[in-house]
Design a protein around this nucleic acid. Structure first.
Lengths: 251, 251
DNA sequence: GCGTCGTCAAGAGCACTGCTCTCGTCGGTT
DNA sequence: AACCGACGAGAGCAGTGCTCTTGACGACGC
């Protein structure tokens, strides 16, 4: 959804033909930009290079995006969308399995996407570009994966309600959940508002930690911080995912 | 340690006076560069701007650093050093306390440094710059914090040996450590070689996960991914650190 | 049908970037 | 004293984001 320059209400007739070709060209621009981004990374994304490939003057591009940052924002939204599609599909494929399997599917979905789209991943989860502040358009697409994790948590909470007081096996959460629950609930108030109500604070906190961990692991690998540290990245990642599932109390 | 252009062996006399002013100017350059980096971020670090501030022609700077990347590398090494100093000092201050306290000190040390040096943090832990491949000079400084964590693990292993067979309290590691230990040991072979020998594979894996998690948490916060998610970042981070300590089996 | 207005593409131009090459100078060595 | 290496300055190249102006074309009201 590329940022429209001006979306005021024109006469109904003109919004058909002209708007249509405008939309088409806007899409062509983001397509080329996405390809350049995938090949060379965000830092070397050049408005002029895109214009060159499209056979038009660079100045013409500024009729469609007010500046380079707006183009980057469109790519960020696209990237979040692509990641969301991929991960949601991966989870849907095992949606009827147990929660541990679904968690694993989400983790591997994120990692797979990052491995095939490293520059897009860096764009959305790497260092923010210097003066850049993420506009509001990005928060919706950005929260798709967290929301998916939230629905996992909700399902966990629902099943825990079914068989509440009789299980205290080795898979139970190992930590002491009691004392500072109020302070924790306060700190997590914003995210609680966006999550299903069934999720208790303690579970939400563990889910947030799992998400933090997943992001850390994928970023470590994508940004090359595991060179000379871990040999078999596949095995290591899978091992990690299972361990975190244990820590989440998924077994 | 700015990359020297040519370190061949000249006559002993010339290496005194000339080399001295050369070193001084090199240091002045990195000082100004570090200030610019801290203020505006790596992406907008300009060789010309640095030269302007130093009152010299931009071309003269290329006598000291072959290109912008080399200057960035020097800043990366500096940043790792600064982070290492800070975290090691934080740990030293509580070095006689128990392992949980030391772990907490390391975590807060990393986070404090990231909060006061966000651009430096982004430089070393954010998305790598496009064509840039970290040269070998960086791996030493980069591994100071991991090595510090490794020494924590070694101390844990030593104390666990003391009182081995009699504790199975609620603080014991919750996961099943047995089956795939060989595959895990293989995957972690590189990092095992750099760590103290006393650390068993299972503990090393948990330590690596803790480090992954710490990096994920600090990056989330530094890169702004917790806006609208967590209100009280201090409380949340401290809570997380304790939870991970539990998962590590530190209590 | 005609004039008008809005939209669009193109070109020139500005200020900036990293980097190279050349040229004059000056310091230390032989 | 002569030489040679290191050095700084300047011009210049190719590239960047972005602005402003100009000219054309299409859709609209009269």
């Amino acid at each position: 959804m590329p940022v429209p320059l001006d979306d005021d209400t024109r006469t109904p007739a003109s919004r058909t033909a002209r708007e249509r070709v405008r939309r088409e060209l806007t899409r062509e621009i983001t397509d080329v930009a996405r390809r350049h981004l995938a090949e060379a990374g965000a830092a070397s994304l050049s408005v002029r290079a895109i214009a060159r490939e499209l056979g038009m003057a660079s100045s013409a591009l500024f009729r469609y995006f007010p500046n380079r940052d707006a183009l980057l924002t469109a790519l960020i939204v696209d990237s979040y969308g692509s990641l969301g599609d991929h991960v949601e599909a991966a989870e849907r494929a095992v949606h009827d399995a147990d929660v541990a399997t679904r968690w694993s599917a989400v983790c591997h979905g994120v990692r797979d996407w990052a491995r095939t789209h490293p520059h897009e991943y860096a764009l959305i989860y790497g260092s923010p570009v210097p003066g850049y502040a993420a506009p509001q358009d990005t928060v919706g697409p950005a929260s798709r994966v967290p929301l998916l994790l939230g629905s996992l948590l909700a399902d966990m909470a629902a099943r825990a309600d079914d068989r509440r007081p009789d299980d205290a096996g080795p898979g139970a959460p190992p930590a002491a959940p009691a004392p500072e629950d109020d302070a924790l609930a306060g700190a997590l108030a914003p995210v609680r508002a966006t999550m299903p109500d069934e999720v208790p604070v303690d579970l939400l906190a563990r889910g947030l930690m799992a998400w933090t961990f997943l992001f850390g692991a994928v970023s470590f690998e994508t940004f090359g911080h595991l060179h000379g540290v871990v040999d078999d990245l596949d095995a290591w990642f899978d091992h990690e995912v299972h361990r975190v599932a244990d820590a989440l109390g998924l077994r």
